[in-house]
Amino acid sequence: MHLISAIANDVENQLSESQPDLHDPAVFGDLVRAHHRELIVYARALTRESNTANDIVQEAFIVAFDKMDTFDVTRDFPTWMRGIVRNKWREWVRKNKRYQYSDTNIAEMDADIAAWQAESAAGNRTVFDALSSCLERLPENLRETVNEFYYNDQNGEEVAEALGVSPAAIRKRLQRARELLKACVDRKISDQSLQES
């Protein structure tokens, strides 16, 4: 009986050691810092709006803090947070009646973000670092298109005018660039995971 009790305590101790104590302000702060950027990407992909995405992530962390007692320690924190972000997004969709995504699409995106969060949480380089590296490898015409559109904050027509090509060509270039970057980022993230294992 004593043995069973000791084993149970040991398991419980191991479980509590491996799971973050969300009641600890320092731990909660670290979790916010570690995961907020990937969650913003997640919320931004869902909402297509920067400010709304930030609001949703902020609200999601506040919900997590308020409901930390209900956090299931057998699940991991990033998964729990993505679930809260999704719920917040669904609330937003209901209020704003904009568009919806299929569950399959959401699941695919969820898997991407989960992989990125896992690398970041493991202390490896983040998806943003990987993206910086991948951007340097893009072909010149795609890189300058991406730079103008995303980093110089120009719309498709302005980029087309600046680069002397049609808006349709810009759309194709951006699509191609995103595909190449996605493949490159995925490769870098999976290479890191393999090195760890």
């Binding site: 950027r37 568009y99 995303y150 970057l181 980022v185």
Partner: peptide, 25 residues
């Protein structure tokens, strides 16, 4: 009555990277 679209996670990632780079918000 809400149209279905496909999310583009790379578009979001690039936009967020352009906003703040690799640092924290």
């Amino acid at each position: 009555n809400i149209p279905t679209k496909k999310p583009d996670v790379m578009d979001a990632l690039l936009s967020e990277h352009a906003r703040l780079g690799s640092g924290e918000d």
